[in-house]
């Protein structure tokens, strides 16, 4: 497994580094950065859904917390945006630990509705507290300041290029941490409880504690993704925490193959690109998106990457 981890990371790093060679215009850097941000949130869900076997239909709520931490903290507390990212992580982790304790006792659809409720509550606060968040119209986000720092050092990069590399590096770090977790004792315990909670607890695994850990970790991933999204767009609306965004990231994870980090990233690539390709047929966007979700789940129920891998293995 050790080599496999470094192989996966190396492939990811090479892809991130090499892709810009194919970009015909600066616009593609922005799409790339968006893919990396989504992939980061999805990597968190791989830990929660793929390994620990828990459902969340409200993870965009944590992305919303991360995003609005970056929007609000610099303005009202005078914090540097980088500190604001950390603040968002801390708040998300704290909230996840607080609500995770009671709701992770729930199973299947019941856990679904509880997490969904959490996501909706976050969206509602962001939408209704107009004085702070600007309500449904959203608010602008202060600049990160790193690009200006680079400029002073004599390196000039455009916003799109800067965020492409920044998000790419954060994604690599996120994937590296997740893969480390996969091969650790905690990771094995998580996968064991996915198989059977009863069996896992009989061999001494503290099931509630582990579930909570997975929930908190995945919340932090979503929070960082939200922060990066807010900072690179320079503007944020409550939609980032909305139900549809929660569904989007779960779909990305399951579409690519929720058991593996690389598969989940593939899912993020496809579902981020799809709307970009479909802008030409804006009218049919929802129609096609819905059909893709249904068809993939029917014909490739384990997700794209595992299904393709299984097919390749069968052929000598």
């Amino acid at each position: 497994m050790l080599t496999s981890k470094w192989v996966q990371l190396a492939v990811l790093a090479v892809l991130i580094a090499a892709l810009p060679l194919l970009f015909p215009s600066g616009y593609y850097y922005r799409i790339g950065a968006l893919i990396f941000v989504n992939a980061l949130a999805v990597t968190g869900l791989v830990i929660l859904v793929g390994w620990a076997g828990q459902i969340s239909l409200g993870h965009a709520g944590f992305a919303g917390i991360g995003a609005y931490a970056c929007a609000l903290a610099p303005e009202h507390l005078g914090l540097h945006p980088v500190v604001a990212i950390v603040l968002g992580m801390v708040i998300s982790a704290g909230l996840a630990a607080l609500i995770g304790k009671p709701i992770l006792r729930l199973k299947g659809y019941y856990l679904g509705v509880a997490t969904l409720g959490f996501g909706i509550l976050v969206t509602m606060v962001l939408t209704n507290e107009r004085i702070w968040t600007g309500g449904p119209d959203g608010m602008s986000v202060a600049k990160l300041g790193l690009r200006e720092l680079l400029r002073d050092m004599g390196v000039r990069v455009s916003g799109g290029v800067f965020w492409y590399w920044a998000c790419g590096i954060v994604l690599l770090i996120g994937a590296w941490l997740a893969l480390n977790l996969y091969n650790s004792a905690t990771g094995r315990a998580l996968r064991a409880l996915h198989g059977s909670e009863v069996a896992a607890s009989t061999i001494g695994i503290d099931v509630p504690r582990l579930k909570l850990q997975a929930f908190v970790i995945s919340a932090v991933y979503a929070s960082v993704a939200g922060s990066l999204l807010a900072l690179q767009n320079g503007f944020i609306t409550p939609d980032v925490a909305g139900f549809m965004h929660s569904i989007e990231i779960v779909t990305m994870a399951v579409l690519g193959g929720v058991g593996s980090v690389v598969g989940a990233i593939l899912g993020a690539v496809i579902l981020t690109l799809l709307p970009q390709v479909l802008t030409v047929f804006a009218e049919y966007e929802q129609l096609v998106l819905g059909a893709v979700m249904i068809l993939v789940m029917i014909f490739l129920p384990r997700g794209l990457l595992p299904s393709i891998a299984a097919r390749l293995k069968r052929k000598p």
Partner: peptide, 18 residues
């Protein structure tokens, strides 16, 4: 699995809406 079924029915709802 439950997650796949959730995605299918949500996909269907997006499809019908579209």
């Amino acid at each position: 699995p439950v997650v796949s079924i959730i995605i299918i029915t949500i996909g269907a709802s997006i499809f019908i809406r579209g």
